[in-house]
Simulated assay, not measured.
Amino acid sequence: MRRAFLYGRDEHTGRCFEHRKQWIEDRLLELAEVFALDICAYAVMSNHYHVVLHINAARAEAWTLREVVDRWHQLCKGSPFSQRFTRNEALNAAELARLEEVAAEWRERLMDISWFMRMLNESIARQANREDGCTGRFWESRFKSQALLDERALAACMAYVDLNPIRAKMADTPETSDHTSIQWRIWAARDGKQPHQLFPFAGSPREPMPVGLPFQLQDYLELIDWSGHYLREDKRGAINEQVPPILDRLQIDPRHWLYLNRNFESRFKCLVGAAHLVRNACQRLGKRWAQEIRDSERYENNLNRLEKLNPMRFQ
């Protein structure tokens, strides 16, 4: 890694790379406008970043050939046929068929998280190398990902990401957490809006369910504020304050919620959700991730045990 601090302050050389955090944030939001991927949450830290993504396959499938080509050209040069196509030059039947075949592959890539991360990380690496006047590898390794299989997993992961700066003692409150999605959401909420760059909150599940996160925005903001308070004070004992209603709807014990706020990333590996959903996912993927199933079952058993010990759900 060239012993370089990625995008924070290098204590050994005294050089500051804080401006690279803005590179990450800007590129992340820019790519979300190109890909069929919605940003649910993100946090750019000093030596890593987190992002929660929603794959919007329906949107990608609805794109016309022109839209697919135009979007791909924002990332790459494309092909000679696609270049001619964008210039409105006539293509014969064979050339058009070949373009449609290639565009089908581009459509798949435009809803692929691996391609999204590739475009994001490569561009940041090139910028950093130019700034440092060197070549070579910038990122330590390939990104790690977790599939969120239900509402509880989604809420826990989003909160873990949004609370990253508070947990790392880089900020005191969510609204002062720079380079995070929660800061964007709070600023927009003050004007009664939701930021268009982020996947919107659509409210509690219902039929028909609009596209968006299955929570009320106000409920989520209250949950983040409540959770951040306990992280700041490092309170690990009794929970005496009123518990946010969203935890009751999701049937998550407050103590388990606070535990996940600190340990979500290390607690789960590839699949996160109810045990039966993890089993189904393993079957569909043809995997035998026994550890993933055991972790989910252990988590559910702990929830059930706490429910029996504390039916009021808080002290």
Rank of each mutant, 00 (worst) to 15 (best):
R9D: 02
G14R: 11
G14P: 00
K21V: 02
E30I: 00
M45R: 05
H48N: 06
H50G: 06
H50I: 04
V51W: 01
A58C: 06
A58Y: 00
A60D: 08
A62L: 11
T64W: 09
L65V: 02
D70I: 09
C76P: 00
A93D: 15
A93F: 11
A97N: 12
R98H: 15
F116W: 05
A125V: 11
R126S: 09
A128H: 05
R130K: 13
R142A: 01
Q146A: 15
A147V: 14
R152A: 08
R152T: 03
Y160E: 09
I166S: 01
R167M: 01
T173F: 14
E175K: 13
S177T: 05
P195W: 02
F199T: 10
P208F: 13
M209N: 10
D219L: 06
Y220F: 15
L221H: 04
E222P: 00
L231H: 03
R236V: 09
V243A: 10
H256P: 00
H256Y: 11
L258D: 05
Y259G: 13
N263F: 12
K269L: 08
C270P: 00
L271N: 09
V272C: 14
A281N: 11
C282R: 10
G286D: 11
E297F: 07
N302F: 14
N302R: 15
